[in-house]
């Protein structure tokens, strides 16, 4: 059920993990999903549990700039990869262009999926600074049950223009 890569090491022991620029020594088995390491070992709860199966995207984080679903990445497979979570996206939690655009468009409803949506959008804009509608629909595959997709799309376009503030 949990596609956790090919991590060979299953035993406990300190594993180094770089999150938001800080290196942590994590005392968790190597096959522990990164999501639960972030949430339970490091106390960083901004990345959410939605499905545990890599389907919903609520747990999305960046590893070396790529957006990945942390519920489906094993701790032992992160290695020296630099993890960035919603908590580390901007120093004040508001100043990343995507966060600004989200605020301007009043994107969140319940907000539970938005950490993941914002991380996915930030990675998209880094890879494709001026995305088309098709770029956005291809990249944004996170589930939002409240249905904020229309505003997400508009906010991404706005962030790309640098217009939302």
């Amino acid at each position: 059920m949990y596609p956790l890569g090919n991590s060979a090491a299953k035993g406990a022991g300190m594993i180094k993990l770089n999150v938001n620029g800080r290196v942590h020594d994590v005392d968790a088995p190597a096959d522990t999903p990164l999501l639960w390491v972030l949430r339970e070992w490091l106390g960083m709860t901004g990345s959410k549990y939605g499905c545990g199966a890599g389907v919903c995207g609520a747990c999305s984080v960046h590893i070396d700039g790529d957006v990945l679903r942390s519920c489906s990445v094993a701790l032992g497979d992160v290695g020296a990869g630099k993890v960035v979570t919603i908590e580390g996206l901007s120093p004040d939690g508001l100043s990343h262009p995507v966060q600004k655009a989200w605020l301007a468009h009043e994107v969140p409803q319940c907000g539970y999926c938005q950490s993941g949506q914002i991380m996915a959008a930030a990675a998209l804009l880094k890879a494709v600074p001026k995305p088309t509608d098709d770029d956005i629909t291809a990249a944004m595959q996170n589930i939002c049950r409240c249905g904020t997709y229309q505003r997400i799309k508009a906010a991404i376009h706005d962030a790309a223009k640098g217009g939302a503030a």
Binding site: E87, S90, G111
Partner: peptide, 10 residues
């Protein structure tokens, strides 16, 4: 209640 939903702080 939007701001806290953008930073993972809620």
């Amino acid at each position: 209640d939007t701001v806290e939903k953008l930073s993972g702080k809620l």
